[in-house]
Amino acid sequence: MIPLSWYLTLAAALFVIGLFGALARRNAVGVLMGVELILNAVNINLIAFWRYGNPMQLTGQLFSIFVIAVAAAEAAVGLALIIAIYRIRGTVNLDELDTLKG
């Protein structure tokens, strides 16, 4: 049986990679990919704690399914917004999107 610390280490690594991807990217699609990695790290934590906690209750699996549904909705809405912005502005570079400024 794989120890809990290995799952937590994997989830922490995924979270850090996703956080770096969300904060360091200038492309909007890259930021969305970073957010998806962060949500996948959360799912690994939920399932790992469910497995090592009380596997008779399904709370970890239910929360994980809820996070997957939220991630799918976020990706769909985010990509729709990016496509709409690209049609209007011609770019998805986040530094050039300043229409709300002054």
Rank of each mutant, 00 (worst) to 15 (best):
M1W: 11
M1Q: 12
M1Y: 12
M1P: 11
P3F: 03
W6M: 12
Y7I: 04
L8P: 04
T9D: 09
L10F: 09
A11Q: 03
A12P: 05
A13N: 10
L14D: 03
L14K: 04
I17Y: 01
I17K: 01
G18P: 03
L19E: 05
F20P: 00
F20Q: 02
F20T: 10
G21C: 05
L23Q: 00
A24G: 14
R25Y: 12
R25D: 09
R25V: 10
R25Q: 15
N27E: 05
A28L: 03
V29G: 09
G30V: 01
G30M: 01
G30T: 00
L32Y: 00
L32S: 01
L32C: 01
M33R: 11
G34L: 01
G34K: 00
V35E: 07
V35N: 08
V35D: 05
L37G: 05
L37A: 05
I38M: 11
N40H: 13
N40Y: 12
N40P: 03
N40I: 12
A41H: 04
V42Y: 04
V42R: 01
I44S: 02
N45W: 13
N45F: 07
N45G: 11
I47C: 08
I47P: 04
F49R: 03
W50A: 11
W50V: 06
R51E: 09
Y52P: 02
Y52E: 00
G53Q: 00
N54M: 11
N54W: 07
P55I: 04
P55N: 06
M56C: 11
M56G: 11
M56S: 14
M56Q: 15
Q57N: 12
Q57L: 12
L58M: 13
L58R: 09
L58Q: 10
T59M: 12
T59L: 14
G60W: 03
G60C: 03
Q61Y: 15
F63C: 07
F63A: 09
F63D: 05
F63P: 01
S64C: 08
S64Y: 01
S64A: 11
I65D: 05
F66T: 10
V67A: 07
I68A: 15
A69S: 11
A69V: 13
A71Q: 06
A73T: 09
E74M: 14
A75R: 06
A76Y: 10
V77L: 13
V77Q: 06
L79Y: 10
L81E: 12
I82A: 02
I83G: 13
I83A: 14
I83D: 13
A84V: 13
A84R: 14
A84F: 13
A84Y: 12
I85Q: 07
I85N: 07
I85C: 09
R87D: 13
I88F: 13
R89P: 07
V92S: 08
L94H: 06
L94T: 10
D95N: 08
D95M: 07
L97N: 08
L97G: 06
T99I: 14
T99W: 14
L100H: 15
L100F: 15
L100A: 14
L100W: 14
K101Y: 14
G102S: 15
G102E: 15
